[in-house]
Computed example of a mutant assay.
Amino acid sequence: MVPERTASATAWAQAFIAPVLIPGSVAVDATAGKGLDTEFLARGVGAAGRVFAFDIQPGALEITRQRLVTAGLLERVTLLLRDHAAMAAHVPPPVKAVMFNLGYLPGGDHRIITRPGTTLRALQDALALLAPQGRLSLVVYTGHPGARQEQETLEEYVAQLPPREYTVLRLAFWNRSPRAPVVILVEKAGGGS
């Protein structure tokens, strides 16, 4: 699972998620942003699949919508102007993949950020929605106010997940700024014994 572009935290997340995206499956982009992960997920689930993309900013969803229109993938995606903490009310299980990119919209208002409480609730819901052998990625950007608290909250939570039920990996760049993003990868155990 080594991405072609090893310099990018999102590339590592996508490389981890890609193997579980099968035609007809359901996936979630918990933070649509500029639509990069939404497009990636839409390609992976195929024409019979469905992606649910959440964002609280209308501008982010419009950027995502335009990206999907250009790629010819809009019909595979449900765009939701909602906080990702509302995931359980809008996404039908089972879900094969969930992706989070935490922080703020690049080029947007840096005061509008993801927050520990709602992100933790979204993470808990996402784990409950995941199918056996489903995967979840969190790209945690750490360079803005409040980011370290969000990172610590999420890391404390995933560290307590039962190892028989979940495998959790944490990737960090050692030779970059301490503010470089951290990638947390979670796989739910299979349904067999």
Rank of each mutant, 00 (worst) to 15 (best):
V45Q: 14
G46H: 12
G46T: 13
A47L: 14
A48D: 15
A48Q: 15
G49I: 08
G49R: 06
V51K: 04
F52V: 04
F52K: 00
A53L: 13
A53H: 13
A53F: 11
F54K: 07
D55C: 11
D55N: 12
I56W: 09
I56D: 12
P58V: 11
P58H: 12
E62V: 07
E62D: 14
I63C: 07
I63D: 00
I63L: 13
I63Q: 10
R65E: 04
Q66M: 07
Q66F: 02
R67Q: 10
R67M: 00
L68A: 02
L68F: 06
V69C: 08
V69I: 14
V69H: 05
T70L: 07
T70E: 15
T70A: 15
A71I: 05
G72V: 06
L73S: 00
L73D: 01
L73K: 03
L74A: 14
E75V: 02
R76E: 09
V77M: 00
V77C: 08
L79K: 02
L79G: 09
L79E: 05
L81K: 10
H84P: 12
A86N: 05
A88H: 09
A88M: 15
V91C: 06
V91Y: 03
P92K: 03
P92Y: 05
P93H: 10
A97F: 11
M99R: 00
M99Y: 02
M99P: 00
F100R: 06
F100W: 09
N101L: 06
N101C: 06
N101H: 12
L102Y: 02
L102F: 10
Y104M: 03
Y104L: 03
Y104V: 01
P106M: 08
P106C: 06
G107E: 04
G108Y: 07
G108R: 07
I112V: 15
I112T: 13
I113L: 04
I113A: 04
P116R: 06
P116V: 12
G117A: 14
T118L: 12
T119C: 02
T119N: 03
L120Q: 14
L120D: 03
Q124G: 02
D125I: 11
A126R: 00
L127Q: 04
A128V: 07
L129I: 07
L129G: 03
L130P: 02
Q133G: 10
G134S: 08
G134E: 06
L136S: 11
L136Y: 13
S137P: 07
S137L: 00
S137V: 07
L138N: 08
L138R: 05
V139A: 08
V140A: 14
V140R: 01
T142M: 11
T142S: 13
G143T: 04
P145T: 00
G146F: 08
G146K: 13
A147C: 09
R148C: 04
R148E: 13
R148D: 12
Q151T: 09
E152C: 02
E152G: 02
T153I: 01
T153K: 12
T153F: 10
